[in-house]
């Protein structure tokens, strides 16, 4: 048997690898990478009476002068930053609190994780009812606590914080699990040793938890950026980009220009610019991707 294998050409394994990987990579390529390139092409055209006419950089010129476009970029960053920081802080707090055995902690973990199972569209509809400025229960609770009523998604200044809040509701449990997994890899002896040395809670948090939790922190950071750039469903259901343009984020703007106004060229130009921004971000993060690859080779 060994003899037969030894006679196979040296690259037979590679050949097999190529054969096995090609259908998956082809599907990835055709339904993810090709559309990106296609979007680039469409962004140089205009859709006129059923045909694409080449217009050069015209769409980009229109966009750079378009105020809504710039507002949408600003809103995207507002939302992204508004989500990342509380995502990390709140879910880390929950994870540290619930990182112990016991029935009650397990019950709370289950509850925090529950929204992950609820479709975003349905969650958005439910929240729309909860936050209804006139008859929703959220304002009733505020009234019971002697706070003024809030317009939530119907208020120009509150709409974005409302979206941030509801997406935290949906995703905090997911991040909590990531942090819990990370926390469980930290040996308990480290904390014991630190407390013998007289370290207080904050010192052991800063010098043990944070450094050893770095992989989880990085993962939550990346995931929340990805989720943030994809925000669509909440806006589609709850605000449609309004009131005013207060929740008009770039990806919703693409949808509106493309599908509600059939401005395929302009919408694709927005996609192209967003992709370029993301490409810069990806290259910026590439070092981190490399980092975990080389670590893997050490194992």
């Amino acid at each position: 048997m060994n003899f037969v294998i030894a006679k196979k050409p040296a690259n037979w394994k590679t050949k097999n690898a190529y054969i096995m990987i090609s259908p998956g990579m082809l599907l990835l390529f055709v339904f993810l990478v090709v559309p990106c390139i296609y979007a680039l092409y469409i962004s140089f055209t205009e859709f006129k009476s059923g045909a694409f006419v080449f217009v050069g950089l015209n769409n980009f010129k229109i966009l750079l002068k378009n105020k809504i476009f710039w507002v949408s970029l600003l809103n995207t960053f507002y939302y992204t930053i508004g989500v990342i920081i509380p995502s990390i802080v709140i879910s880390l707090f929950i994870a540290m609190g619930l990182n112990r055995k016991g029935g009650y902690a397990a019950t709370l973990r289950t509850i925090y994780f529950l929204p992950v199972a609820i479709s975003e569209a349905i969650a958005a509809v439910i929240w729309q009812s909860v936050l209804n400025p006139d008859v929703g229960i959220a304002n009733y609770i505020l009234q019971l606590l002697h706070f003024p009523k809030i317009g939530w998604y119907a208020d120009f200044n509150w709409a974005m914080p409302t979206l941030i809040m509801v997406s935290l509701w949906k995703n905090v449990g997911y991040y909590m699990i990531i942090f819990l997994a990370g926390l469980q890899t930290i040996p308990q002896e480290y904390y014991e040793a630190a407390s013998i040395d007289g370290a207080n809670w904050w010192q052991s948090f800063r010098n043990i938890t944070i450094p050893l939790l770095r992989p989880s922190l990085f993962f939550v950071y990346i995931t929340s950026i990805i989720f943030s750039f994809r925000i669509f469903t909440w806006i589609y259901v709850m605000t449609q980009g309004g009131p005013g343009y207060s929740t008009m984020v770039t990806v919703y703007y693409i949808y509106r220009e493309g599908f509600q106004r059939s401005h395929f060229g302009l919408a694709s130009a927005i996609s192209t610019i967003l992709l370029l921004i993301l490409l810069v971000l990806i290259i910026f993060q590439m070092r981190q991707f490399r980092l975990f690859k080389t670590e893997e080779e050490f194992r």
Partner: peptide, 21 residues
């Protein structure tokens, strides 16, 4: 790395080409 990097692409960026395809 390309496969992992595609995770960063927001779905909405490709909705128009995908719809046309």
């Amino acid at each position: 790395i390309v496969a992992v990097a595609t995770m960063m692409i927001p779905t909405q960026v490709i909705i128009i080409p995908m719809f046309l395809m």
